[in-house]
Amino acid sequence: MNVLSLRNVVKAYHSHIAVNDVSFDVKAGTIFGLLGPNGAGKTSLIRIITTITGADSGEVLLNGEPLNHLHPNEIGYMPEERGLYKKMKVGEQLLYLAQLKGLTEKEAKIKLKTWMVKFDIMNWWDKKVGDLSKGMSQKIQFIATVIHDPKLLILDEPFSGLDPINANLIKDEIYQLKEKGTSILFSTHRMEQVEEICEDIVLINQGKILLYGNVDTIKNDFKEHLFSIKYEGDLPSVTDHLGFSVLEKRPNEVTIKVTEGVSSNQILKTLIDTNISILGFNEILPSLNEIFIKKVEQSNE
């Protein structure tokens, strides 16, 4: 079941095409990464999904239905540029934003109390947002995004400007929401976070999709048959006849590239027969960061 499906979505702004024939699916209950360099069209895409703007052509389905005026109540959106009324009190402000999402005042109050108790910030209720620190107001912004129990949560760079403690707090909340069945669309250009928390990703550049799929599958697709070996003893200086070449040599550790057609088991077997003792044998998978840079550079050429 897909919570969100995009079909051939196109959006042009007078001179340039911001979103060019983009299609992808977000599975229900997963964390999905929307990646791309600055200006790739991520924000344009998000604005289409959040019904802020409309697509020129193509189709966006939320829970299988074309986007309509009721859908904003089922989406929670935290923009990259955070924004709250500085002169409004925390409690009043969150109640207002929750009611704009279709909650009644009573429902909003109950939900808000639960969240504020959870974050241990009940004493902020009557504080003005302008008097809070940046990290504090990020928490408020997060509550504003999730208070109406959205089915789809869209987070644009949710960890930017957060210290590690608060970042972990938000990360835990994201996982908990996921456990409860919320689907999360996570837009960023910070690859290490994506690797950690996303199951599927789509990588866009200049409005077009460069990569789309499961994170592990993508990493496998881009692997270069590299292994790292930890050992004791003397490694033969010439290894080509053993089925691999040494790329980098450090004391008691080498990075090797396995010749195509040779399996890792064969390599291990050969090495065991030599007089070195093997302490470790790991496959080196490319990081998403490397894949990202490689793909974006290719497409920009």
């Binding site: 904003p72 923009p79 924004g83 704009l100 504003a144």
Partner: peptide
């Protein structure tokens, strides 16, 4: 004020 605060983007993801 809403535009400079950037809260407007949060608001119009809730209403027209």
């Amino acid at each position: 004020e809403e535009k400079i605060n950037r809260i407007v983007e949060v608001l119009i993801s809730s209403l027209k």
